[in-house]
Every structure is written in structure tokens, then in C-alpha cells.
């Protein structure tokens, strides 16, 4: 399998065909993985993941590779950056596709639920929990992750997640005067 290590970024953004082919070979697995997850989450047939992934590649090379040129190797690895950018592009693609194929009245409410998730908020006073504590509670309770999954996502060990959770719950109980 092609590797991101083989990619000459300067040659890639300069427009070389061979560099583009090498980049596609290396990037296709991660972009396709993103597309699979996005179509599954939005109730779109999994066969459409290829079209969604293809649209991501179109965006990457559009306007003389404008999007690709924004990548800064000093900030993040190419694979992670691609996964984030591909995810945004894929959601955009499905949104445009839905607008093109159906009126809003025809779309079941469950299909546009991800729009509503923007307005879901917790009523916790600002500053009561640290950012990390709030995120850990989100992962454990809203996303139903177990400790190992949350630890892998946050790149910390499981004990750190347990400890963060424990301190967060203590603060919440104390603030709301709730007995454990």
C-alpha cells in the first residue's frame, strides 16, 4: 500500500501527474474510510461512498489545488489532516445532494437530525468543569464510549480518563448539592 511518506508535497502542489497518482494511492484508503462513515451516519447507501470520496478528491485538486495548498506539514500529519478535511467535504457533499434531490418537506426529520445537534447544549455554568472534564463526560455519556475508547481518542491512558471523570462528577455534585 502506498504511504504518505512517499509524497513529495512541493511536486504535488506544483501539479505533477505522477505525484498526484502517488498521492491518490496513499490518500484513497483514509478518504474512503471517512466517506463510508459519513454515508452510514446519514442513511445513504454505502455504495455511494465512492462518489463521496471522489468528490473529496475533486475538491482537493480544484482551483489549482487551492485546498491542498493550505496543508501545513508542521501542524499535523497529512493523514489526519486529510481525514478532517475529507469529513467536512463529505458532509457538504451529502448536504448539497439532499438539497438537489428532495424538498425539505420530503426529508424525514431523522435524516436532518445532524443539523439539530448544533443546538444541543449542556446547562453547566461556564468554568465549573475544565474543557477536558466536559469533553470526557460528553464522550462517556453522550457517545456511550467506554474508558478505553475515550482514552484512545484523547491519546491518554485509561486511568487518566477515570480520574478526570471522577473529578468532574465531584464538581458537578458539589455545585448542584447532590449526594453521591
Amino acid at each position: 500500500m502506498a504511504s504518505f511518506d512517499d509524497i513529495d508535497l512541493r511536486a504535488l502542489v506544483a501539479g505533477g501527474k505522477r505525484d498526484w497518482d502517488r498521492f491518490v494511492a496513499a490518500a484513497a484508503p483514509v478518504i474512503h474510510a471517512v466517506a463510508r462513515r459519513v454515508v452510514a451516519a446519514h442513511g445513504v447507501p454505502v455504495e455511494e461512498a465512492v462518489d463521496v470520496a471522489q468528490d473529496v478528491f475533486v475538491r482537493l485538486c480544484a482551483d489549482d489545488r487551492r485546498l491542498l495548498k493550505t496543508y501545513d506539514p508542521a501542524r499535523a500529519s497529512l493523514g489526519t489532516w486529510l481525514a478532517v478535511v475529507a469529513r467536512s467535504c463529505a458532509v457538504d457533499h451529502l448536504r448539497r445532494r439532499r438539497q438537489a434531490h428532495a424538498s425539505l418537506d420530503e426529508v424525514p426529520e431523522s435524516a436532518i437530525a445532524f443539523e439539530d445537534r448544533h443546538v444541543e447544549r449542556l446547562n453547566i455554568p461556564p468554568g465549573l468543569l475544565t474543557e477536558r472534564q466536559a469533553l470526557v463526560l460528553r464522550l462517556l455519556y453522550d457517545r456511550d464510549m467506554d474508558v478505553a475508547e475515550a482514552a484512545a481518542f484523547l491519546k491518554v491512558d485509561a486511568q487518566t480518563v477515570r480520574s478526570t471523570h471522577h473529578k468532574a462528577m465531584l464538581r458537578l455534585r458539589d455545585h448542584f448539592r447532590i449526594e453521591a
Binding site: 500500500m1 484513497a28 484508503p29 483514509v30 478518504i31 474512503h32 474510510a33 471517512v34 463510508r36 462513515r37 459519513v38 451516519a41 470520496a53 493523514g79 489526519t80 481525514a83 478532517v84 475529507a86 469529513r87 467536512s88 458532509v91 457517545r143 481518542f153
Partner: peptide, 16 residues
């Protein structure tokens, strides 16, 4: 977005 991106990086071992 973050969860999908992190999971996709892990799943990238599957060929496209």
C-alpha cells in the same frame, strides 16, 4: 467530525 476523522485514520488500513 473529530470522532469520524480519528476513526477513519485507524480504518485506513483497509484498501480503497
Amino acid at each position: 467530525l473529530a470522532l469520524d476523522a480519528a476513526a477513519a485514520v485507524q480504518e485506513a488500513a483497509v484498501p480503497a
